[in-house]
Amino acid sequence: MQAYSAKIPLAGIKLSNELFLIRLSSSSSSVDTRSALCQILAENRINIQFLTGSAPGELSAVTGCVAAKYRARVKELLLAGVGFEAKPEFVSSVGLLSLFPHRASLKILGLSLLALGRSGVPIYAMASSLSVLSFITDYARLLEATKALKEYFDLPPEPITIPRSNNGTQQEMSS
């Protein structure tokens, strides 16, 4: 991949711990998959670290991420089908890549999508917050995604701290 001629300077990238992704979609927008997912996780005291919910056309969709340690428990709860009219889908090992600040810039948004799209790293979901663009991708490919973004953005050279994963290993980001 050819590097972008004038890289945009950004403050940095933060990578999350390993997460478990849940996706619920229904062919009917009248099915409130978002509320159903949030309710069942709250009742079981499970924190949602990331969530998007939309209603494209006549559909209803929600994507949520929880800590990987809840993988088995959440699968059990959702596959039991309590209150759901939508079949849940799962991605066992994902991570959150947070790029900041986005400055509400279409240039930064577009380049980040271009970088990740060209790299072939999957984007399971994305959402902005006040200053951060957060991408959900495979946990094992977080560093690959970071490297792809570095083709277009001038990011700090120092290693990015990555929290320990469940098996106690720790990845390091090399510049």
Binding site: L106, L111, G117, A125
Partner: peptide
């Protein structure tokens, strides 16, 4: 996704920005 990114980053409108953006897979 890369084509979309290319299109979005090329939008050259003064003051153009976003309040919220998200992507969801089907």
């Amino acid at each position: 996704i890369a084509d979309l990114g290319l299109a979005v980053q090329k939008i050259d409108l003064p003051e153009a920005g976003f309040h919220l953006t998200l992507i969801e897979q089907s």
